[in-house]
């Protein structure tokens, strides 16, 4: 069953203006990888050259910051959704 990733306004130019994208995978990292496969242009905005998620990119699994879970290794269930939330500064919410 697919999961949904909510895309913030600033990144919608790279998702054909879509507010959310259906993706599949077993972990947060796999969902993000699927997202950047479907929308190649997003990659450099989300990942550093070393392949790590850029440190100011905030990803929430449902309402939890993945930094306080198992980051990209966090398992996902059917129906879980991810949100990429812009940092106004660091994006503590």
């Amino acid at each position: 069953m697919p999961n949904t990733i909510h895309i913030p306004t600033p990144l919608r130019p790279f998702t054909d203006k879509k507010e959310s994208v259906e993706v599949s995978g077993n972990t947060v990292g796999e969902l993000l990888a699927d997202l950047t496969t479907r929308h190649e242009g997003l990659k450099r905005h989300l990942y550093a050259d070393d392949g790590k998620l850029r440190n100011f990119v905030n990803v929430y699994l449902n309402d939890e910051d993945i930094r306080y879970l198992q980051r990209e290794k966090t398992p996902v269930k059917a129906g879980d959704s991810l949100s990429i939330v812009p940092s106004v500064a660091g994006g503590v919410r």
């Binding site: 913030p8 939330v85 812009p86 500064a89 994006g91 503590v92």
Partner: peptide, 29 residues
Amino acid sequence: PENVTPERKRILHAFGAEIVFTDPMEGSD
């Protein structure tokens, strides 16, 4: 935007300003 740093919210509150929070997904726009 709702995701501004807590310091900012507290400073605005200290000066007595009212804050209308907007969707963090939409940023400052």
